[in-house]
Amino acid sequence: MVSKKDYNLSSTSSRLRRAPVEHIAKLARLSLSKKELGKLQKDLSSILDYIEKLKKVDIKKAKVYSHQWLGENIMRDDQESKKLKMENKKLLELAPKIKDGYLKVKSIIKPATGGRR
């Protein structure tokens, strides 16, 4: 069984360097301060050290897991299900910005100079 002794609590392992942590934060769409990135670098390194344990397991014959009692796909009829106006209204009210019954978002691509906005 695992115990505190199985990993070094004061581990300063630098399995993860700073650049990949920044890259992962960008992939995960998280804007983080320098201090937060530093803390994550340390935390993730010690968690990954612990997870290294899995390398000791012989997985050559093992299949990828699946729940045995969910063997078949459950399908529904390919029919449009319309939301009631009231339901629509409730969902839209949760959004920070709406316009004419749509969600409004910031521009994705900057318009070219002089182009139509």
Partner: peptide, 13 residues
Amino acid sequence: YYLRAQKVRTLVK
């Protein structure tokens, strides 16, 4: 990581 973990999961099962 992920694939290995899913195989270990089968062994646990």
